[in-house]
């Protein structure tokens, strides 16, 4: 069967002022699969994720070369409307970041930005998103309370629900479980494996075990370069590059 590619990254280099963060990166990302991009801290993984939804543009002096295609079309085209692009490519950050408002308002935030005012529609969106993120049962009786009062794990699932409410096509997760306990992490990983049926998921795992547990494909990055990519089992079982095997076996540094 022919592979379906959702995203193609072509000869992508990324700079902040004069400093190069990513070197000449090529990567094809398949539809309805979970891709984990792993590597030591400072490898440029966060930058890569943020190049996809163009959030890097908030950084002064940021500059990109090469191209990134979504469904075969460049996300850096002139006519791309940033807000629409970011709704298509949702993002979950490493630290749970509920906005200081109620649970309901957090989930409805994106829809309201789009101009949705109908109460019924909004509450349907909120309910569906919270159910998909496996948070509904825990919060359904306190939707009007502050999202800041939730536990860390609940907050992160809230953030995932908030992205799901956008009905995106791609979900970027930047070390979403780095501050969470194992039980919360397991819950999030469970929902990710269910969500991949409908979304393309790109995950920066916070450790190798997570990459091994949830991903179909993995990619290894080191100091801004993509070293190797392939099926999960292949890379972990017999990496082709010495650096990959060094990193996997913990012989690095």
């Amino acid at each position: 069967m022919q592979d379906q590619y959702k995203i193609n990254i072509r000869d992508m280099s990324f700079f902040i002022e004069k400093k190069q963060i990513i070197y000449d990166l090529n990567l094809d990302i398949r539809t309805n699969e979970i891709l984990s991009i792993f590597g030591p801290a400072g490898s440029g993984i966060t930058t890569l994720l943020r190049a996809l939804n163009r959030l890097n543009e908030l950084i002064p002096g940021a500059r990109i070369e090469g191209d990134i295609l979504l469904d075969g079309k460049s996300v850096y085209r002139k006519e791309v409307v940033l807000t629409e692009l970011r709704r298509k490519i949702g993002m979950v950050f490493d630290v749970p970041t509920p906005l200081p408002m109620s649970i309901f308002d957090n989930i409805a935030y994106g829809a309201r930005l789009k101009g949705e005012k109908n109460k019924k529609v909004l509450s349907d969106i909120v309910e569906r998103a919270l159910k998909e993120a496996a948070l509904w049962d825990e919060v359904k009786n306190r939707l009007k309370t502050s999202a800041l009062a939730l536990s860390g794990g609940q907050q992160q699932r809230l953030c995932i629900a908030r992205v799901l409410a956008l009905e995106p096509e791609v979900i970027l997760l930047d070390r979403p479980c780095s501050g969470l306990d194992p039980i919360s992490t397991a819950k999030i990983e469970d929902s990710l494996t269910q969500l991949k049926e409908r979304f393309t998921i790109i995950l920066a795992p916070h450790n190798l075990q997570q990459a091994g547990r949830v991903s179909d494909y993995v990619a290894f990055m080191l100091m801004g370069e993509l070293i190797e990519t392939g099926k999960n089992d292949d890379i972990f079982a017999n990496p082709k590059d010495q650096r990959t095997s060094d990193y996997i076996t913990g012989r690095f540094g």
């Binding site: 939804n53 959030l55 908030l58 807000t83 629409e84 970011r86 709704r87 949702g90 993002m91 950050f93 630290v95 970041t97 906005l99 200081p100 935030y109 994106g110 309201r112 930005l113 789009k114 953030c159 908030r162 992205v163 956008l166």
Partner: peptide, 22 residues
């Protein structure tokens, strides 16, 4: 926190919406 702005932008907010709502 800068993260509030990033969240709002990542959810498809414009600058104006981000300032007013987040």
């Amino acid at each position: 926190p800068q993260s509030y702005r990033e969240v709002s932008f990542s959810l498809g907010g414009t600058k104006w919406q981000t300032i007013i709502k987040a």
